[in-house]
Simulated assay, not measured.
Amino acid sequence: MLKVLFHVPDSSRFTACLRQVNNLLATIKEEPYDIRVLINFEGIKVVENFQPYEEAFKALTEKGVKFYFCQNPFKTFGLSTDLVPPPAEVIASGIRALVDWQKEGFMYIRP
């Protein structure tokens, strides 16, 4: 199984990440995959105006791509986790997820 983790700690890289995930998916034929996108630190600010990303986000989630937002920076930046678009998940610790997922064999990509 292809296991890939895209890490977005900077909101200015979110569009690039969505494009790179699409590019990767275009190369996958019948191989099973688990593609995850972790948004943490300043990257979570994309929720302030998510409208420009909605179409691409929806298309990727329909293809099974999973999105995770770290809970901690929401407090730091004074944002509500209610802004996280479903079916994305809010997780307690992005850094812990990075460590655990890499131990599970996920390949790390930082767009």
Rank of each mutant, 00 (worst) to 15 (best):
Y53I: 10
S12T: 14
A26N: 12
K45H: 14
S93P: 00
A97V: 14
V47K: 06
D10N: 14
F77S: 04
K29C: 00
D10C: 09
K66F: 03
F74D: 07
E30W: 03
L24V: 12
K29V: 10
L60Y: 12
Q102I: 00
Q51D: 12
T76K: 09
Y68L: 15
F77T: 06
P111F: 01
Q102F: 04
S80H: 14
A88E: 05
P86T: 15
T61N: 09
F69Q: 11
A59T: 13
K29Y: 05
F69S: 11
L2K: 05
T81I: 15
F6A: 00
P86H: 15
F14K: 01
G94M: 01
F77I: 08
P86W: 11
E104M: 07
Q102G: 01
E55L: 13
P85W: 00
I35V: 15
T81W: 07
T76N: 04
K103G: 01
N23I: 06
E104Y: 02
F41S: 13
R13K: 15
N23M: 09
D10T: 03
Q51E: 13
L24C: 09
K58D: 07
A97Y: 15
S93E: 05
E62D: 14
A56K: 11
T15M: 07
F77Y: 15
K63P: 06
H7K: 04
V47F: 08
F69P: 06
F57Y: 14
P32V: 06
K29T: 09
L83T: 04
Q71D: 11
F77R: 05
D100S: 11
K45R: 15
